[in-house]
C-alpha cells in the first residue's frame, strides 16, 4: 500500500488526518488525539494493520508527540502514526481497548515521557523504581556526572 492509497482510504473517513510519505513505510499519519481509538480500529479492521509494533513519545518542550508503529502481514509494511498533545496537559486516550499489547508500551511512555494515558488498566511504573518522581526522557531532565550525587551510607 503506497502513501496515496493510504491517504485516500483514511482521509475520506477522517478528514483531520494528514498522511505524509515516510521512508520505507507506508507513510506517516498525523492525527488529532481525539480520533485515536476510531482511527486505530479502522487501521486494524479496515486496513489490516493488526500488529502494534511500538508506542513511543517524544518531548518537543511545548508539546509532546506520541507515535505508534503498526505492521500489516497482508501489506508487509509498517505504518507510522503520530499525534501531539500539549505539554501542559499531556492526556491521551489509552490504546489498550484496541491493541491490548499497548499496555506495557504506554506504561513506559508514561513513566519516561510523562504522557498520561486515560482509562489505562494498570498505569504503574514499569522501569523506574517505585516512588521515582521524574520523567527522565523529558528535555528538562539533565544528566550529570555522578560526582554530584550524594550517596547515603547505610549502617550495617
Amino acid at each position: 500500500m503506497e502513501g496515496e492509497e493510504l491517504s485516500r482510504r483514511l482521509v475520506g473517513k477522517f478528514p483531520a488526518v494528514v498522511v505524509e510519505p515516510f521512508r520505507e513505510t507506508a507513510g506517516r499519519v498525523r492525527f488529532p488525539p481525539e480520533i485515536l481509538l476510531d482511527l486505530f480500529r479502522e487501521m486494524r479492521d479496515g486496513l489490516g494493520f493488526d500488529h502494534l509494533g511500538q508506542v513511543g513519545a517524544i518531548d518537543w518542550v511545548e508539546e509532546r508527540e506520541v507515535f505508534y508503529t503498526l505492521w500489516s502481514d497482508r501489506e508487509k509494511q509498517y505504518v507510522f502514526l503520530s499525534t501531539r498533545v500539549p505539554a501542559s496537559a499531556p492526556h491521551l486516550e489509552s490504546l489498550t481497548p484496541v491493541f491490548s499489547s499497548a499496555n506495557w508500551h504506554e506504561r513506559e511512555a508514561w513513566e519516561l515521557v510523562g504522557i498520561e494515558f486515560d482509562h489505562h488498566p494498570d498505569l504503574r511504573p514499569l522501569l523506574t523504581p517505585t516512588g521515582y518522581e521524574f520523567h527522565p526522557l523529558l528535555r528538562s531532565f539533565q544528566l550529570h556526572e555522578p560526582e554530584g550525587l550524594e550517596v547515603k551510607v547505610r549502617d550495617v
Binding site: 493488526d50 500488529h51 502494534l52 509494533g53 502481514d73 491493541f99 491490548s100 499489547s101
Partner: peptide
Amino acid sequence: QDCIRLGIT
C-alpha cells in the same frame, strides 16, 4: 491469533 493480538514476534 493471540500472538498477533499480544504483539508477540
